[in-house]
Amino acid sequence: MKMRIFVTGGAGFIGRHLVKALIKQNHEITIYDNFSNSSKENLKKFPFNKSKVITGDIRNLDDVSKNSIDNDIVIHLAAKISVNESIQNPQETFETNVDGTENVLKACHVNKIKKIFALSSAAVYGNNILNHVSIESENIHPISPYGKSKQKMEEKIINFSKNYDFDSKIFRLFNVYGEGQSPEYAGVISKFVECSKKKLPLTIFGDGKQTRDFVAIEDVVNLFVKVISLDSKKNGEIYNVASGKYTSILELANLIKKLSNKELEIKFEKKRIGEIDHSTASIKKAKEELDYEPKIELSQGIRKFLI
């Protein structure tokens, strides 16, 4: 069924991939972005007969409300996403991720939009030990201002959804990778691949034993496309979105060396403040309730970068 979808942060890395997929499904898309983490240049190839782009900031309630009128769904991606930036300027991170989210929710209420999907982060879980699998129902202990802002964002959505009977789903993304990540906000895979192409050293912050759960952007997008058409109503339900497998950063570096077939140096530098040690998700809930099934193996996903 054709729907009108308002996408905050729709010009960012995840947003662009998602919007393209939604346009292919014949939905009408409004991209709402302040272009702080993205560029209008990246949207030049979009079919504007099926989408429109509005420059705006979720910290401005009147602007969000005015521009989200006459939509069926809101997909809320807009956020400050850098852990390091959140440590340097926690106020701006909270203003965007928490206060901005509250504005989006108020706009939904005013405009009678009863369905919202929002992105949260694995950063809400905080530090874990090796082999610990994060489950949505466990207590969370974020260690960075970014993680704490996402925790508060989730609380806003859950409370608002229950008070105003919103159909809302929150997706805790783990380490998403794929084509088109900006150099400033790229994940470790994109950075390693870029270094590989230039034959530069692969720099690891810490001892390399820290682990991450990497998930391909295509698997994330496929889940969103699927849940949009689902008829199951949830009031603030949370789902992990990941591969369900962990890889150490040192293993990742060696895998990229192997796939690139280059003799690359691996350098170690001091661990960065606010970064978690281990991160692996249970994706059982998303599999059972949303029919989520990640299909792209890590080596397969990385090969796309190296071509």
Rank of each mutant, 00 (worst) to 15 (best):
L255A: 11
K112L: 07
R4D: 02
A21T: 05
G147Y: 02
N67H: 15
F160A: 02
G56F: 03
K198M: 11
H76R: 02
A281Q: 11
L105D: 04
D219C: 07
K198I: 06
K156H: 11
K257V: 10
N254S: 14
K262M: 12
D277K: 09
A21R: 04
I23L: 15
I189K: 02
Y177P: 06
P183G: 06
V53P: 06
I135F: 09
I54N: 07
D219M: 08
E102G: 08
T101F: 00
I266P: 10
E297A: 09
Q151A: 06
Y177I: 07
E138K: 15
R172C: 01
L298D: 00
K20V: 02
V98W: 04
T280Q: 12
D277C: 09
Y146Q: 01
K284P: 12
R4P: 15
F166Y: 10
I307S: 04
H132M: 03
N89F: 05
S190A: 14
V53K: 15
I54W: 13
G147M: 01
I54P: 07
V64L: 10
K20G: 03
K199M: 10
I302G: 01
V221C: 10
D99I: 04
Y164I: 04
S144E: 01
N97K: 01
S182R: 15
N261C: 14
V7F: 05
L173I: 07
K285S: 15
I5L: 09
T93A: 06
L130R: 13
D33T: 04
G100M: 03
A78I: 07
L200Q: 09
F214N: 04
I31M: 06
